[in-house]
Design a protein around this nucleic acid. Structure first.
Lengths: 228, 228
DNA sequence: GACAAAACAGGACAACCGGTCTGTTTTATA
DNA sequence: TATAAAACAGACCGGTTGTCCTGTTTTGTC
């Protein structure tokens, strides 16, 4: 075999440049993507190492266990995704109701353009890990709580401006999140994002159709023959 | 060690009674419970075999692979759970809206009495398996579709009786299922079923509070110190 | 009762996973 | 430049998992 020769001839010892922060972020990127695509248990550290181009020693130096890595993904990435996708847009909207509507439509549009549905990162991990470990559960529940509070606070702000007087902030927030989470679950199973628009339309009350076109929207099956 | 002696003295060869159907059902029972408590990937066939008191040969005789067993659980047990918990009660209710309300309250009451939240069997598996295998995804999506159609059909029946004229059956069904699924997800993460009641109250429109008491319901943390 | 098929028992195994361990290289500090 | 700590490399190992395989027992059928 010439393998040894090739191995022996792998050239001059490469110049290594330490970049702890960059390497840590790269690992978090890969882990986040792997959890989103395959879930926690189906994500192997070895595969993530290969994808990230990181050695076992390096990974273990930054994350002592798979649990520690997962906790970091939850607290630094999943929480950030909820913040970017939901909390910030709602806070910046003209009203809570309008903010919720905008997020639903933005996500639906993104999924339709993307062509497949990977689901909500928070819900994906919450289903798999809430019962697996108390630390996981607490971290995930905390994100749900912050999400809900942000929406409820927006409703309260609306109320101080004289609107939404008949709305219970906590209940409104709970339903908005539940409808979104559940719709994403259905959309993931069906690989069809149209249920998001169905839920949004019903949430807003079909009594006031925002657009004159009441023609039934055709379902768009999003999953292409080849796996994404 | 006397282990060998004990093993050797395990008595006369036991009389074996073949009961293929019973054994199959026992395996499905154990698998369903394990999937619900731990999910698919964290459920090991060896552990299920031990719990069910079934040998590897017997299990393999009825279910050639873990995938085949899982598919059977989905089609025979998860679908049945949706049928019993949702479809039958809704069909038997006075109206779609009343049926949805009854199911929400029944599940919330059951969870509060039970003391912990394991989540919706369909959603639990859907999150973990929808992207893992096309066969899994199709089976799960089919259950969602049947669930939704049953509710939509009930709305249509209401409409033929002159009610719910302003309601879109498909959208109503989508929101009911999404709100339930998402609320169960939040309840599982928080181990607190009260979000189910919050969502139900908001779904019914807080404009018509069914009960005069508008005092804020205190959250009941359900998870006991010891694991369930 | 003969016999074939179904039902069941239980060991074996290769693949894989997460964690550990030892050793080397880079970097900060003085 | 000396040196200690941080950063990284890569092999190794015990345990687990799903599946396969051979053999035995039960059951239905003639």
């Amino acid at each position: 075999m010439s393998a040894e020769i090739v191995l022996a001839a792998k050239g001059p010892p490469r110049k290594r440049t330490n970049d702890p922060e960059g390497l840590r972020n790269k690992v978090l990127d890969v882990a986040e993507a792997s959890f989103q695509a395959r879930g926690y248990h189906a994500s192997a550290l070895g595969e993530m190492m290969a994808t990230a181009g990181v050695s076992g020693g390096a990974l273990h130096h930054h994350f002592s266990t798979k649990k520690a890595l997962t906790l970091a993904v939850i607290e630094e990435r999943v929480a950030g995704a909820v913040e970017d996708t939901w909390i910030a847009p709602v806070q910046g909207a003209n009203s809570a109701r309008e903010g919720v509507r905008a997020v639903f439509e933005a996500v639906a549009a993104e999924l339709e353009q993307q062509g497949f549905v990977r689901g909500c990162p928070l819900n994906n991990l919450a289903h798999e890990l809430s019962l697996a470990d108390p630390d996981f559960r607490l971290a995930l529940a905390g994100i749900f709580a912050g999400w809900r509070q942000a929406i409820a606070d927006k409703v309260r702000a609306d109320q101080q401006a004289g609107r939404e007087q008949g709305t219970d902030p906590e209940r409104f927030a709970a339903l908005a999140i539940a409808a979104y989470s559940g719709a994403m679950s259905m959309a993931k199973a069906a690989q069809d994002a149209s249920v998001l628009r169905d839920c949004l339309a019903e949430l807003e009350g079909s009594s006031t159709p925002p657009f004159p076109s009441r023609a039934k929207r055709r379902s768009r099956i999003l999953l292409r023959p080849g796996k994404p």
